[in-house]
Simulated scan of single mutants.
Amino acid sequence: MLAINRIHHVAVIVSDYEKSKHFYTEIMGFQIIQEIYRSERESYKLDLSVNGLYQIELFSFPKPPARVSRPEACGLRHLAFEVNDVEQVREQLLTKNIVCEAIRIDEYSGKKFFFIADPDDLPVEFYEI
């Protein structure tokens, strides 16, 4: 078995860098670790801290192809974030004019969860512990 400690980061390519930067910092509340512009690639790289534990990397590239979200395609299905209170998180997002799906119950764990979409329609899940 490989000696893997934990997930280090998740990388997301975005179509509109400023819009996604706003979403992940102002709406989601992630803290900026560092922001780099790579002129040779015409690309930004934004490292974000998720509660001081994990990192999301946002990348911008000129004209990336659209991501297929629906119907679901092979590859990364969604990002999921653990929260203490699903109803509270959903209400906070609704006050920021974010479209939220209805809260559902996981049929196996009995836990509550719901989804939103980021600016590129990447599904983002909030799962109650």
Score class of each variant (00 low, 15 high):
D47G: 08
L48M: 02
S49K: 07
S49W: 09
S49I: 10
S49A: 15
V50C: 08
N51W: 09
G52P: 06
G52K: 12
L53M: 12
I56A: 04
I56F: 06
E57K: 06
L58W: 06
L58K: 03
F59C: 03
F59S: 01
F61D: 00
P64C: 09
P64L: 09
P64G: 09
P64M: 10
A66P: 00
V68E: 13
V68L: 13
S69Y: 05
R70V: 14
E72Q: 11
E72Y: 05
E72I: 11
A73T: 05
C74N: 00
G75C: 08
G75V: 01
L76K: 04
R77T: 00
R77Y: 10
R77L: 12
R77S: 10
R77C: 01
H78T: 03
H78Q: 08
H78V: 05
L79H: 07
A80K: 05
E82Y: 06
E82K: 07
E82H: 05
E82D: 00
E82L: 03
V83N: 01
D85W: 06
V86T: 00
V86E: 04
E87F: 14
E87N: 14
Q88G: 01
V89A: 05
V89W: 05
R90N: 02
E91C: 09
E91K: 13
Q92P: 03
L93M: 12
L93S: 03
L93F: 14
L94Y: 03
L94G: 00
L94K: 15
L94I: 15
T95I: 08
T95K: 14
T95F: 10
K96E: 11
K96A: 09
I98P: 03
I98F: 07
V99Q: 14
V99N: 13
